[in-house]
């Protein structure tokens, strides 16, 4: 397979996803061995974060360091020349001569796709507005696979902001490539899963059920993927305050759930998961965040054509 750039989860076929999940497992074994690695020695990763995202950036940087490579970049567009009005094209054309691969995040949708037009080295999209964040999807799939041993025959609950939450859109799309999954969308009416994406997923034979009530469905779920309701998506403060506390996963809620449920969250959380459940073995969001490392190691080394 070829993966010149990784901009959208649609860039990968089901076999490609399987390939990266296997590769991530190899990376995990190497990490477990605690031996220093030199798979990407001599290679430089540039992290261009036109919008701050500490977690994602640190995860990529850590992955590159683990691979024995090095990292340059900026974490905040305010301190870079972008603020001075430099065009994206100029930034990219400059940075490509400083590095071997670029990871970028932008508040603007389609920014990474545009960057590929000016760039001769690989680009990975680490989030472009509300559009795509494909490496998050791979690590979500990897987490499910690790815990459930399969990506098929699962009932997956997506809960929270399903309208603007890009991670749930990409995850649902990716899950629909696997057999016999059922997706339960749990959201208030105002933040319902978009019909356009719903249609595309159903076309592939994946069943989608919509509800507003988490309590009613939690006992059916194998996976519960919770997302944050983001303040910046709302026009009025009042509307945000009304919706933000709609779903809370706490001990009481988890009492009704299956013993082998897994609770996931892309983090950061606000109050949709009560910290009292953090010690419940079903809550695996911190493990999920850690899995970002082997997954990104797999992607970086593959796209840099470095052999492990």
């Amino acid at each position: 397979m070829e993966l010149e750039n990784f901009i959208s989860i649609n860039d990968l076929k089901k076999e490609d996803i399987d390939f990266f999940l296997k590769k991530a497992d190899e990376m995990l074994k190497l990490l477990d061995s605690k031996e220093p690695l030199d798979i990407c020695r001599g290679k430089i990763l540039a992290t261009l974060f036109f919008e701050p995202s500490t977690r994602t950036r640190l995860s990529f940087e850590s992955a590159m360091h683990r691979l024995g490579g090095s990292v340059v970049g900026f974490a905040d567009a305010n301190t870079s020349s972008v603020k001075k009005g430099e065009s994206l094209a100029d930034t990219i054309k400059t940075v490509e001569s400083y590095s071997d691969i670029i990871v970028m995040r932008s508040p603007f949708e389609g920014a990474s796709m545009l960057a590929t037009k000016y760039c001769s080295i690989p680009i990975i999209n680490a989030g472009d507005g509300g559009h795509e964040h494909p490496t998050q999807t791979i690590l979500d799939l990897y987490t499910i696979k690790k815990k459930k041993n399969t990506l098929s025959n699962l009932t997956i609950g997506l809960c929270g902001d399903l309208k603007f939450g890009r991670t749930v859109h990409s995850l649902a799309k990716a899950l629909s490539a696997f057999n016999n999954n059922k997706i339960v969308c749990i959201a208030p009416n105002e933040l319902k899963f978009p019909n356009g994406i719903k249609g595309k997923i159903e076309e592939k034979g994946t069943k989608i059920i919509q509800t507003q009530n988490l309590e009613e469905v939690i006992d059916k779920l194998d996976v519960l993927y919770v997302t944050r309701i983001q303040k910046e998506r709302f026009l009025s403060e009042k509307e945000y305050l009304r919706l933000k506390g709609v779903y809370v996963v706490d001990n009481k809620m988890l009492q009704k759930a299956k013993k082998d449920l897994i609770v996931m969250h892309p983090l950061p959380r606000v109050d949709e998961i009560n910290p009292e459940v953090d010690s419940d073995p079903r809550c695996i969001y911190f493990k999920q965040a850690f899995y970002g490392i082997p997954v990104r190691m797999a992607l970086l080394s593959f796209m840099l054509k470095c052999q492990s």
Binding site: P107, F108, G110, A111, L114
Partner: peptide, 12 residues
């Protein structure tokens, strides 16, 4: 029509 689209903030 998407105000957050990159085409609405770069000269392309």
């Amino acid at each position: 029509k998407n105000p957050r689209c990159i085409t609405n903030c770069q000269d392309i």
